[in-house]
Each structure stands twice: as structure tokens, then as C-alpha cells.
Design a protein around this nucleic acid. Structure first.
Lengths: 177, 177
DNA sequence: TATAACATGTAACAAGTTACATGATTTC
DNA sequence: GAAATCATGTAACTTGTTACATGTTATA
């Protein structure tokens, strides 16, 4: 039970919702950050239901496809509280896999390596600029979107550091073979 | 075919090895960064073999358990080169899932949130210090370990930025409710 | 009347983990 | 003779993706 459970639990804690609604919300507000696919959300909801973290209530309007409206249960609340404490209380294990390319940098000709790192630098600085252009949610917290600003500010800080490191490293590599 | 394939391909590019040997090498030199389990390595090797990225050669010493020695094939070399260019040439998609806790920060009492973030700060700065204590491989590049220093320096930079951001954020949160 | 939006799902596949199983050899 | 090391694997499970299938209702 991982990130997706955490996310859905958090959204359902705000208010009961059906699957499509959750997917739409994520799509509209969080798709820049969250990569969960719609089919995944449905199956994660099934599993959460099986584990008693949420409860299901079928509703139908006219002849439309029925909706399954999910409510967080006390067990779900408890689990969410646990996940929240864990998530806030310590940093994530850092992702080294993204650095495999660096680990194998010596397997490629130095000039080509430099070129690639410069490509990376361009993309990274574009991404960084794009992040900074995201408007703040700040005021309207109806859906609990306030925290997104925090996450964006952290990501921005990390990207800037990455860019600075990369720029410095490229210079170093240019200096000595 | 993802990170583990990339890693094993890179190690096999250096020299042919059997599964146990690869696992030992990762355990001794890369376990701080790489989390792949031994059973995973074996099954990834099987898949790589099936895809023709590596070739297998059985050897046996006395009555010992037989070894399967793997060699990278031309197809494997090509695939490795591709992965390397992709990995170096652009930044990884950033990991927002680690920020889910922040996104839901408003779901917890402010004082408790602050306490948790301070715990996180402690762990993070300890991790950061630990990273800096890792000795450089620098000289002996027999196994292609040179790049590890690069990866460590990047991780250090990122962690420091994370710590700085966290420290700043805690201050901000303390100031205004 | 076409198509976008609504609403849910299944089947097949891919990747990884955990726990267990096997048996030889070296070292204490 | 016990324990560590050598060397490989399997079975069951978890999580997630892709591609496909189904049918309704509002809108242009």
C-alpha cells in the first residue's frame, strides 16, 4: 500500500467521491505532479475497499452508468494519519537510480558526454522555469490544495540545486579531461 | 526494461560475470545507492538473456554449484548506449510522490506538523552528513566506479538544497499560522 | 447526428519483493 | 561438527501499465 493509496485516502478524507470524480480532480489539479493512470485508480480503490480503508455506496442517476461513491472509514482515517506522519516525519530514501547515467559516464567519449550533459542542462532549466510559472493556489483551500504550493516550492528548490550542480559539473569536466 | 537492466548491462560491459558476482559487487560497492534485491537480479538476468542483450555460458568448478557467466552481446551494447544517452541527456521526471505529505499538511494540527518537519530535518541532516563522509573512489577505476563520485556529489547537493528548503519552510510556518 | 463527457471496468503483461528451498565448500 | 560463504533459483504476491470494451447523456 503505497503512494496511490495515500493520495486517494487524502482526497477522500476531504469529501466522499466516486472514482471518476477522483480521476478528474487529479487530472485537472495534480496531473503535473501525479502520474497515476485512471485504470490504476479504479483498482487501487478496489483494494482499499477490500482492506476496509474505505466504504462503497452505489448510486444511480436515471439510466446513467452507476457511480460507486467512496467514503473513508475509521480504519482508513487511522491509516492515513500513519502515512501522513511517516511522510512528513522523515525524508524519502533518495533516488539514486536516476544517477546511473552518471555512474557510467566514463563509458562514453568525453566530448559526447559533455554534449549530452548540456542537453540535459537545457531541458532542466526549461522545466525549472515552467515550475516557477505555475500559479499559487494559496487562497482557495476547499479541496486541500494549499499544500501543493509547498510541494511546488520544494521541487523548485531541488531543481535549481540540480541545475547549479550540473552547471558546475560541466565546467569541471571541461577543465580537466 | 528499466534501471536494473541498465545497471547490470553497465556492469557486464566492464567484464563478464556470473549472477552471484554481480550481486556481491552491488552489495559491497553500491548498496548505499542501489536497492535491487538478489532474487531480482537473477530474474532480470533471465529476461535480459531472453531478449538477447546478454549471452550465457555455464561453467563448473569441481562439484560446486554451477555458475552462469554472462557476457554482453552487440545488441546489449547498443541498448546500453541508448540507455546511457537517454539517462545523461535529460533529467529524470521529478518525484512528486515524496511530497504527498506536504500536500496534505493542512490535514494535521500545525504544532504537530512542525514537530514532524523538525524530525525530518534531523534525519535529513544526518543523512547529508553521512553522504559527505563517503570516501571518494576517484583513483581506482577498474570497475568503472569513478562515476559513483559524481552521483554522490549530486545527491549531496540535492540533499543540502532540500535541507535548506526545509529549514526555511519551518521558519515560515512558525512565523505565520 | 456526431462527438465529447460521463462512468466503470477487464485481460494481459511487466517489474519487483518476500520467503523459502537446495546443496556444496571453506573456515573456525 | 557448526556456521559462513558460495551459487542459484521458485512460488506467491503486490503494484502498476496498456489496450480494450461497454454503454449513457449532454452538446454543438
Amino acid at each position: 500500500m503505497g503512494d496511490n493509496t495515500f493520495l486517494l485516502l487524502g482526497l477522500l478524507k476531504g469529501q466522499k467521491q466516486h472514482g471518476y470524480q477522483l480521476n478528474e480532480f487529479i487530472d485537472r489539479n495534480l496531473s503535473r505532479f501525479i502520474t497515476m493512470k485512471k485504470a490504476t485508480a479504479y483498482s487501487v480503490l478496489d483494494r482499499m475497499l477490500a482492506k476496509g480503508l474505505i466504504a462503497e455506496e452505489q448510486t444511480q442517476v436515471g439510466n446513467r452508468p452507476p457511480r460507486k461513491v467512496y467514503t473513508i472509514t475509521p480504519a482508513g482515517e487511522a491509516h492515513f494519519a500513519l502515512l501522513l506522519r511517516e511522510s512528513l516525519g522523515r525524508p524519502r530514501e533518495s533516488e539514486f537510480y536516476g544517477d546511473l547515467g552518471l555512474i557510467f559516464l566514463n563509458q562514453i567519449a568525453p566530448e559526447q558526454a559533455l554534449e549530452l550533459l548540456q542537453d540535459r542542462q537545457k531541458v532542466l532549466s526549461a522545466n525549472c522555469a515552467a515550475l516557477k510559472r505555475i500559479p499559487l493556489h494559496d487562497g482557495h483551500l476547499g479541496q486541500g490544495l494549499f499544500g501543493v504550493d509547498l510541494a511546488v516550492s520544494r521541487q523548485t528548490a531541488l531543481m535549481e540545486a540540480d541545475l547549479a550542480w550540473l552547471t558546475h559539473t560541466i565546467e569541471e569536466l571541461r577543465r580537466k579531461p
